[in-house]
Design a protein around this nucleic acid. Structure first.
Lengths: 205, 205, 205, 205
DNA sequence: TTGTAAACGAGACGGTACGTCGTGTCTTTGT
DNA sequence: ACAAAGACACGACGTACCGTCTCGTTTACAA
């Protein structure tokens, strides 16, 4: 099997500059926030000419997205081989995952960059599509895979739409984080999982 | 019944200018989008000096919020007397409401302004608090009221946290709208309601 | 002899406000300089509404002029009874006067206000006319009077134009002060008087 | 003879922009006057960004000065080779020069710009120093050179300070122009020269 | 003595310009 | 050919004042 190497945009391209830019972008947005994040600032922080940024990224959002992708997928491999845990207990596994998500969203190191990225996505359909394909898509597939396994194990209704299920489980956490409508805690994560699995209706008998 | 008079911020304040600004802000954000929305532009469109905006609003977000509040609460009374429908059939009622939400989110007249407002809220905790108190809060209360009625009618489990329930029902729609992870249709709204009410687990016998 | 009282512009006019404004204007221009002098600042410093200034003065220059007139003519009466000294020695008398002028121009308390007033005069012909009539005119008359006396005493050529003579004596000092083309000293004043009186040509035998 | 090339402030600097700015500044001040002269207006008239002005000039006065220098020294070379006329008749030569000065000061094309420049010099010591060195200084040297020649020819007293002499001859014209204390005519110029040369005292026998 | 009309302090208003910052493009000068 | 550097035209920022315009509140004259 041939080594699957991601082709660089150009053989001429300076890998040094690329990494410096991505790192600077990620760090800067964490420091100064989304509103004060500027291409100029990123270039200066990266020790790079502005043109080098404009040459390779079409928009601040795209750069932010790449920065995010590069610096979160780096050490751990969230999206590649990282399947969701499967101990057989769906609720427990989901709680584990959701608690991890909650922790990440509460981590100030990721909070600002993720909010920034989120904003760009909200306003840029092209970026949203890219996001759906390269970040949300793979993640969602992993989640659906876990649910499929649960269904096979008889822990999930046959007629449940897996996408809706994923939305039901992960949507509320994201919203509470974005809009700060309440504290984002492990307890809340557990409640969401339990409620989503069980449903809102009274338990029959 | 005493005259219900809203106290103005200042007796000196020009109501004409205030309304012109709010209208211009709302209209402009719909025209040019969030990224190109400028105080300068709003002032020009409103026929107003910039200082008049800076004098009364602390940030672009606050202005946007007020504009949103003033121009959506105006004709219809969303938050005051507008209780959620209660026909006795919880699922049907929720679907009705959610479909209305979907329609609104799909209305290009509201799409851009709402995205803009959302972005400001995401990045400004103070504004988020204001939003929680003045917009989301009352709405949420109405929703919870409907759920309480359903619970009294035995259509809702006694031990369900109402806030979590609201999040479960309304969160997914908001997310799909923001991130464009899929088409925002009546069908999707129905699916969310059904799944949320019934739960993900297999139906017991 | 009836008291020669200057009629106020209006019986309603507040003398308190008027004096506060003139004082504030003079003091402020000395503090912050001409460029940063603002009507708004004067009003604030005087504890007065802006309109009270606009009501009584047509321009910043006019106000500055009045302030100057009021606060320099106050204690000593420069223009009324203050004839130039006449000891019989024209050169000595002129040197005395010129040295006093030099001292005044070197006094930081008067430097900035006078420069400000000068600037307004240079750019505003109407103000220049007013200045010529109310400040420069009387002063010049006094100077010419002294020169007339000198002429009667045979110390001045019969055919000398007195206005030109005054210009010749006082012009150079003013210029050196304004343009800082050299140090403004008593010695310079003496040189100017001597040279002006004697002329540039070689002394005949 | 080596090419005498003035070093630009920076190799990167756009000569086009520089000239456009200087020209626009000079023209604008002539059109709208000193009070209404704005950097913004100059930039617009020059088809240039404001920053390009702020980048290269520390103040409006400095820009005005450069504009003046560039646009008056351009065609004719006022300061370089332009020695004062020397026909042997000092009075006649001085009258010629002074009449030319009078004409220039009366030329509406130069009146407003010169008043503006004068004002900036009066209020800005740094600019005054620059002016003394680059404009007034060379001019004054030419004048003094002519006077030195006259002295050598026995037409000037040996003990006369040449700076004072220059002040005496040129000061009055400048003052009358600035303060409009009288009409600025050739006749006045002649009178000043005659009086300055002859002195105010009676002609001895 | 009491209106009443002005001048007053305060300050909001529509504007203009300020001086700064960031945009995205372009040019210059090394590698 | 790409990169660092940075000038450029442009546009928006948030601030300071402009001169005009109400607002109540004194204040002094006239009824």
């Amino acid at each position: 099997m041939p080594t699957q190497k991601v082709a660089p945009d150009s053989s001429r391209r300076s890998e040094t500059a690329r990494r410096a830019i991505l790192t600077a972008a990620f760090d800067l947005v964490g420091d100064v926030g989304y509103a004060k994040l500027s291409i100029e600032g990123i270039a200066a922080a990266a020790g790079v000419g502005k043109q080098t940024i404009y040459r390779w990224w079409p928009s601040k959002g795209a750069l932010l997205f790449d920065a995010f992708l590069a610096l979160t997928t780096d050490g751990g491999q969230d999206g590649q081989g990282g399947a969701l845990p499967d101990t057989g207990d769906l609720a427990a596994d989901l709680k584990l995952v959701l608690r991890a998500v909650v922790d990440e969203l509460n981590d100030p190191r990721y909070d600002l960059p993720m909010r920034a990225l989120h904003t760009e996505i909200v306003h840029d359909p092209a970026l949203a599509a890219d996001y759906a394909k390269r970040l949300d898509g793979p993640m969602r597939e992993l989640k659906k895979e876990r649910l499929r396994a649960a269904r096979r194990a008889g822990q999930l209704a046959e007629d449940v739409d897996l996408d809706v299920a994923v939305d039901l489980i992960f949507g509320p956490i994201l919203n509470r984080w974005l809009q700060r409508t309440g504290p984002l805690t492990h307890g809340y994560a557990d409640q969401v999982v339990d409620t989503a699995l069980r449903g809102l209706r009274p338990h029959e008998a």
